[in-house]
């Protein structure tokens, strides 16, 4: 594989959402880069691709998928991969990512990011699929930790060991979702800092930040609220451990005006700068 070892530091970004297309073009906001949802642009034509191209002229982009289904036991979807590659050629993203999860079997797609059992057998399965994907794309990918609400009986290792092991064996990188660590920590009663401190420093190339909601005894990763203070605190710890990592805020529902998200992004900038200064001292 002709690997792309160069993962530039992009700064602070936002998820590109249709609600903000026009505002981005008109106001050229202080956002360093945008992350697109891959599948939203695997379409024949129309406005989404028009805006994608227009905004790409002025901003770096990365692509973030939801349907690669890395952990599924179905064969890899070759048609999907071909269209994925075509879109990569169009967007020329700094990198591409998807989730460490599965989304369906037997040809179905439940449109959710379902967790995997944390075992070495599953590690080998996912590693083999990531290697096939990386070989096909000719580039290394990033894999993201998902929020989860259950643990399988079969699991015999921690989620962080599972993630590290896959990244190491597949020689891919990690998109570390700080909110997902917090959500899963609350749902499974582990200390998010333990998770954070076990992740291999040299594998992390991007952070996600997002809000969540409370549902009875659990926290659900809804991406429909502002980032909460404990997640900002965890982000500060992440900045300290991993250094300068490209960071973005994901908002998928209850979407506020663009300027509100740009303001929220300032908090990420502030924390990152503060932690850089602290480390320098």
């Amino acid at each position: 594989m002709n690997k792309t070892k160069n993962f530039p530091y992009l700064g602070f970004g936002l998820g590109l959402r249709p609600e903000h297309y026009q505002a981005i073009i008109t106001t050229q906001p202080q956002v360093d880069w945008f992350e697109i949802i891959t599948e939203n642009y695997m379409i024949p034509g129309g406005k989404p691709l028009y805006y994608l191209d227009k905004i790409r002229e002025n901003y770096p982009m990365v692509m973030h998928g939801v349907s690669l289904s890395l952990g599924s036991t179905d064969p890899l979807d070759q048609q999907y991969l071909a269209e994925f590659k075509q879109l990569i050629q169009r967007v020329q993203p700094a990198w591409v990512s998807d989730h460490l999860c599965w989304t369906g079997v037997d040809g179905y797609n439940v449109h959710d990011l379902l967790p995997l059992p944390y075992t070495m057998e599953v590690v080998r399965h996912v590693v083999s699929r990531i290697q096939q994907i990386q070989d096909y794309l000719g580039r290394q990918i990033l894999i993201e930790n998902v929020s989860s609400y259950l643990t399988y009986q079969d699991s015999d290792m921690s989620e962080w060991d599972f993630l590290n092991e896959i990244a190491q064996q597949a020689d891919c990188f990690i998109l570390l979702d700080i909110n997902n660590i917090y959500v899963s920590g609350m749902n499974h009663q582990f200390d998010p800092l333990t998770y954070l401190n076990q992740i291999a420093v040299n594998r992390v190339k991007q952070f996600h930040l997002a809000g969540h909601s409370y549902l009875d005894h659990y926290i659900v990763d809804t991406h429909d609220q502002d980032v909460i203070p404990p997640v900002w605190e965890l982000y500060a710890q992440a900045c300290q451990r991993f250094g300068r990592i490209s960071t973005m805020i994901e908002r998928d529902d209850n979407i506020p005006p663009l300027e509100d998200l740009v303001t929220e992004l300032q908090e990420a900038r502030r924390i990152s700068r503060m932690m850089e200064l602290e480390t320098a001292l």
Partner: peptide
Amino acid sequence: QLVDLQQMFQ
């Protein structure tokens, strides 16, 4: 084992 598990979850 993983095939069965995923089919049951689905």
